[in-house]
Deep mutational scan, measured.
Amino acid sequence: MDPFVVLVLCLSCLLLLSIWRQSSGRGKLPPGPTPLPVIGNILQIDIKDVSKSLTNLSKIYGPVFTLYFGLERMVVLHGYEVVKEALIDLGEEFSGRGHFPLAERANRGFGIVFSNGKRWKEIRRFSLMTLRNFGMGKRSIEDRVQEEARCLVEELRKTKASPCDPTFILGCAPCNVICSIIFQKRFDYKDQQFLNLMEKLNENIRIVSTPWIQICNNFPTIIDYFPGTHNKLLKNLAFMESDILEKVKEHQESMDINNPRDFIDCFLIKMEKEKQNQQSEFTIENLVITAADLLGAGTETTSTTLRYALLLLLKHPEVTAKVQEEIERVIGRNRSPCMQDRGHMPYTDAVVHEVQRYIDLIPTSLPHAVTCDVKFRNYLIPKGTTILTSLTSVLHDNKEFPNPEMFDPRHFLDEGGNFKKSNYFMPFSAGKRICVGEGLARMELFLFLTFILQNFNLKSLIDPKDLDTTPVVNGFASVPPFYQLCFIPV
């Protein structure tokens, strides 16, 4: 058959498939802009700032609406009420993970971030239990974070109060905490193996944040037939998995079943207990991918939040002064901060919360999916439909947070200066898919920041009023603009 005829037939089939998918069930789905064949609503979305586009569309179609990214149908949730109703009140029905062709290629359905069903539930339950087990290797997770915080302070001392970009050092600290939990080992910041790991993690975040990856996920045929950065992403992930597998083999040879040292040991012990169960989800494949998931999810998000926190503290020296006064009063100079201190430091706690609220790190979270046909607000959402959640619409709700575009710790303080919780605080998402490392991340943010401010004054290279804190939105995360500062020993 003539190649031209084959091409026309293929394009015609794709067009018909697109029209059929977009028209099927439209009477039951939430409203939304009319999609174009094949490309859907992509032309109506700013790929570099999806969150802003969703906010604009919500003003037209309401808090629940339908979009098509290519052939992929998505239902968008915008605003606290619908997000709570879906992710919390109907948590089980909305607990699936959205379709990610690239991740599915890399992870093969294993791990904790992109798995679904029984596998996801069992691996998540085990990971939560293990991360909360403060007795691994007779050292609590808090001990590990405190140790890394001391190392971080010593690295900052080496800058000798000269101007520096904190990106690298602030990236090393949370990565080392995860390494300590998974591998029972922290690395020197100049260790070549550690630097290679950091390089792969950072490069992957840069790649994932590009519009090209959005295109690959919406048109998965590209993955096999086109060159691009997605190939580098898959190569980096394969490198990390190979490295983790080597460490798993080392653990198998040296493990003491009665004295687990780290996450890998705990997983291997669980595998041993379930070795007679042919349906067990505790396999080497799941261990390797879960460890890679924890490394990827637990490094860049925390380091970016820390980097943004220091920029905001530079911009608002009056806030920094209040935090340091609270540190001096509650902790002093002669001991290290600990998590028990947080309950006695409402202002510092409010500042950490406000940093996370203000920066809105992951504006749309990772997409969910419905696990069955769901009736939601008089609409029928078919099983498997991807759910896109606007966390921006919750964290920047102007009824809950007056002047949401302003950095103001009073958003989390009552009139008496006591810490005030808010149900709208969802930087880790909400419901059954809430970030498994939430507790660890909150511990790291509090301890790293208090250790830094206990030991250093922060000095800006320019007038604080002239510092730009506008986030650089890159399609996946909101990151701070480049800046330098000086760490002046107190």
Rank of each mutant, 00 (worst) to 15 (best):
D360W: 01
L195V: 15
I387M: 03
L485C: 15
L485G: 05
K48E: 10
Q340I: 12
I141A: 07
E92G: 09
A350S: 06
G27F: 11
R105Q: 07
A369S: 12
K235I: 08
D408C: 07
L440I: 14
F456L: 04
E142A: 05
D143P: 07
Y68Q: 12
N107K: 14
L306T: 03
K84S: 10
L380G: 06
N204S: 04
V64L: 07
D463T: 09
K249P: 03
K84F: 06
A149C: 09
E122F: 08
K28E: 12
E281L: 10
L295G: 01
V5Y: 15
H411R: 10
T167G: 13
R333Q: 09
N107I: 07
Y483C: 08
I42K: 05
R132G: 12
H353T: 06
Y80E: 02
K420W: 05
I47S: 13
L268H: 02
T283S: 10
V436Q: 02
I213Y: 10
F168I: 12
L453P: 02
P260W: 02
E104C: 10
R108T: 05
D293P: 00
E281Q: 10
F100P: 05
N41I: 00
K190E: 12
D466E: 14
L461M: 11
R442N: 15
K48S: 11
S95K: 09
K185R: 12
M255C: 12
F65W: 05
C172E: 08
G332Q: 04
K399I: 15
P174D: 04
V319D: 05
Y358Q: 05
K247A: 12
K420H: 15
V436F: 09
L131K: 00
R206C: 08
D256T: 07
G40M: 00
K190W: 10
C266I: 10
I207D: 05
I42P: 03
S390H: 15
N423K: 12
I452S: 03
E250Y: 08
T305P: 01
R442H: 11
C151E: 13
L131V: 07
K322Y: 07
E203T: 09
K138F: 07
A149I: 02
P101F: 09
R132H: 12
N418F: 09
L7N: 00
N116P: 02
Y379S: 03
V83E: 03
L306N: 01
T371L: 09
R73G: 06
C179K: 04
Q484P: 05
D293M: 04
R342V: 13
L87K: 02
K185H: 10
P33L: 00
I244G: 01
L195S: 13
L90S: 09
E300S: 13
D293V: 03
Q193E: 13
E328C: 12
E104I: 09
H396G: 06
L245Q: 09
E405F: 15
F451P: 04
S180L: 07
K185N: 15
I284H: 08
V394S: 04
G62Y: 00
G109K: 14
Q279T: 13
F446T: 03
R342Y: 11
Y358S: 05
T389H: 04
E148V: 02
Q252R: 13
